[in-house]
């Protein structure tokens, strides 16, 4: 499943670890949110990078207490129409100042790619066989936006700003 960072395929360094499997001591590991909540204290001393995967039903407020343990938050989109993930990412960035990676997985469309980036997602996992050209082009589609986002966007005038997604 290719992982895109600003339209470019990148290597996924994280290994997804099942809920009860032992964590690799020296490799980046991705665990479900329930496990992070349960083993937070034990994981505090871990040296290798840790990521957490949450569903779109999770509230950013509930993830916040654990943000100092993780460098990656993976947000699952069960359906592309479920827009809660946008709010989760934006809240993690704006309210809680999370500066690690935020990754979208699940059912997302290239037509949503710009929204993801503007809400603070850094990466998106796309389905095998997806047309990566369509994904890359989606970030080049618009050059103007009308509201502040988390991309670097110099303000033009009024409410408009010049998009800088790539």
């Amino acid at each position: 499943m290719p992982l895109l960072d600003h339209g470019r395929p990148v290597e996924d360094r994280f290994v997804a670890v099942a809920d009860d499997a032992p964590l690799p001591a020296d490799a980046p590991a991705l665990i479900p949110f329930a496990r992070l909540q349960r083993e937070a204290d034990a994981l505090a001393g871990r040296n290798a990078a840790l990521g957490v995967q949450v569903t779109s039903a999770t509230h950013a407020e509930d993830i916040a207490p654990f943000l100092d343990r993780v460098t990656l938050v993976v947000v699952e989109f069960p359906k592309f129409r479920d827009g809660r993930g946008f709010t989760i990412a934006r809240t993690l960035r704006e309210r809680y100042g999370f500066s690690g990676e935020i990754r979208a997985v699940g059912h997302v469309l290239p037509d949503q790619y710009e929204f993801l980036v503007r809400c603070g997602f850094t990466c998106v996992a796309v389905s095998d066989g997806a047309d990566l050209g369509v994904w890359a082009a989606a970030l080049e589609r618009f050059h103007v936006a009308y509201q502040p986002g988390l991309d670097t966007a110099p303000v033009l005038s009024g409410l408009r700003r010049r998009l800088a997604l790539g």
Binding site: Q112, L116, Y146
Partner: peptide, 16 residues
């Protein structure tokens, strides 16, 4: 008009 601009392709609120 301010609301129109602000809500146009709003990145967070287009899949309510």
């Amino acid at each position: 008009e301010i609301l129109r601009q602000w809500s146009t392709l709003h990145p967070e609120f287009s899949y309510l």
